Lab assay of single mutants.
Amino acid sequence: MATVKFKYKGEEKEVDISKIKKVWRVGKMISFTYDEGGGKTGRGAVSEKDAPKELLQMLEKQ
Rank of each mutant, 00 (worst) to 15 (best):
K5A: 02
V23T: 15
L56C: 15
K13E: 01
I20M: 06
K5R: 05
F32P: 00
A2M: 15
Y8R: 03
M29Y: 11
D50E: 08
E12L: 13
L56P: 03
Y34P: 00
R25G: 14
M29N: 15
Y8I: 09
V4K: 00
G27N: 11
Q62W: 03
I30M: 12
K28F: 05
V4C: 01
E48Y: 08
G27H: 12
F32A: 02
K61I: 13
Q57C: 15
G10S: 03
R25Q: 14
V4Y: 00
K5D: 01
D16M: 09
E14W: 04
P52T: 06
D16H: 04
D35W: 08
Q57I: 14
E60D: 08
K53A: 10
E36V: 07
K5Y: 02
G44F: 02
K22F: 12
I20Q: 00
K13C: 03
E36N: 07
K21G: 10
Y34A: 01
Q62C: 15
G39W: 04
Y8H: 14
V15F: 01
I30D: 00
K49H: 11
K13M: 09
A45K: 07
V4A: 01
R43N: 15
K7C: 15
L55H: 00
Q62G: 14
G38P: 11
G39L: 13
K40N: 12
W24C: 15
K21E: 12
A45H: 11
R43W: 11
S18D: 05
D50W: 13
Q57W: 11
L59P: 03
I17Y: 02
D16Y: 10
I30H: 01
Y8D: 15
K7Y: 13
W24T: 14
L59E: 08
V46C: 07
E36F: 06
K21P: 02
M58D: 03
K22L: 14
V15E: 02
I17W: 01
E54I: 04
V46Q: 02
V4N: 00
K19Q: 14
Y8S: 04
F32S: 00
G44V: 03
M29P: 02
P52N: 04
E12H: 05
S47D: 13
I20P: 00
Q57D: 09
M58P: 02
I17L: 11
E54C: 10
I30E: 00
K28E: 15
L55P: 00
E36D: 08
I20A: 01
K22S: 13
K28W: 04
K21A: 15
L55T: 01
E11H: 07
K19M: 14
T3F: 03
M1C: 13
F32D: 00
V4R: 00
